[in-house]
Design a protein around this nucleic acid. Structure first.
Lengths: 206, 206
DNA sequence: TCCAGGATCTAGCACTGCTAGCGACACGAG
DNA sequence: CTCGTGTCGCTAGCAGTGCTAGATCCTGGA
């Protein structure tokens, strides 16, 4: 009896220890992702090396590889979190009550470009770096699907008889093109306002 | 007299030798650019290392550095040639006689996307990689300015009272967005036709 | 108290872009 | 024809990259 109770208690304790370990492991996992994103946002992705990253989280390099298959997987994890935030921002912009019908689309577009401008490194990981994330398939991360869904939802009221999926891809392409060319200093800043006005007028005619 | 003639002849010969050397040097310069582009187009830019490139042109690495300041400069040289070709393609597409007024714009857009699709590595060097080429300034390579000019020219007939520069930037952004997202497998191939139709209809309403 | 197993680190591999310094070769003078 | 001179290209090496094998230490359980 005593043995049984002790054993049971011991097993319970073990489980608790395991839980604590798993929790600590999960925290460290997140710590690595956060450190990578911070490093990229402050010094650019070129500065995100496994050595610097390991130093920042105060572990040795091999620890990174016990959490992620390689550096690519870390960038991918950062990107997925980026999709989630972009989705949240677009949703908030789109659903904030307004008076006109095209305003939600404009709000969404502005939120998209603001995100790309404020977090260029994050945007880069999500959409520019070769990141090996399936987009059209079933393994597409939910965060990504939701983000695209926000664009579709914002365009739905103005689509008319146009194909909604193709329209969403076209509109997204325009935003993405502006975001990347802008970041590469290939567009004139003084035209920012006019340029977006033209895109909105083109895709959502009054 | 004899000495003078000899001296003169010798000097002339020296000049000729110098010319030959300069010509050979220029040829090797071009050889490096071509090799870099071919390597990138067949195996991707990741495969373009100074060692492989040197091996391909059958010289040692330091020779590359006697022609270019560094690897970046080689990529830049490849990109500049890309601008020239893209400009030629767009010009040809735009000026080929047609019946309707929006056809030139469609032809230009299709030429742009065909170029991006057929030579993804070259397009990457031109517009995706950080390449440190000024775009808005006076040192902007002529090839680049001409390319943008083609877009402006194609939009001019359909601009109406819209700001032509902003319109060109917006239209270019849409094309660039499609090109890059398409290359990253982020757009559905089966929507290619519809998507472009929508962009054209949006920017050049009938 | 001692052992087994897991977590973590040290040290090293093959590769990268880039460069210092040596050696060979072609040129021009005597 | 021989001999300096100067240019040109090479070998070898540096610091830094992503990634990993093997040793080491530390903790939980008998």
């Amino acid at each position: 009896m005593n043995a049984a109770r002790l054993s049971s208690s011991a097993r319970f304790w073990v489980v608790s220890v395991q839980q604590r370990r798993e929790r600590e492991r999960a925290e460290r996992h997140q710590l690595i992702i956060d450190a990578a994103r911070e490093l990229a946002e402050s010094d650019g992705w070129d500065a995100v090396t496994t050595r610097r990253l390991a130093e920042k989280v105060e572990y040795s390099q091999p620890v990174l590889y016990s959490h992620f298959k390689g550096k690519d997987a870390i960038v991918r994890a950062v990107a997925v979190e980026g999709f989630a935030e972009l989705g949240r921002r677009m949703h908030a912009a789109r659903t904030t009550p307004t008076t006109t019908s095209t305003a939600p689309l404009r709000a969404l577009a502005e939120a998209y470009l603001r995100f790309a401008g404020e977090r260029p490194a994050l945007y880069d990981a999500m959409f520019v770096q070769r990141i090996d994330i399936a987009f059209g398939s079933e393994e597409t991360p939910a965060e990504l699907r939701t983000s695209f869904g926000e664009i579709v939802a914002a365009l739905e009221p103005v689509a008319g008889d146009r194909d909604l999926d193709a329209l969403a891809e076209a509109f997204w392409s325009a935003l993405h093109g502006i975001a990347t060319l802008r970041h590469g200093q290939r567009l004139r800043p003084e035209l920012d306002g006019d340029r977006l006005d033209l895109v909105l007028a083109a895709f959502a005619p009054a």
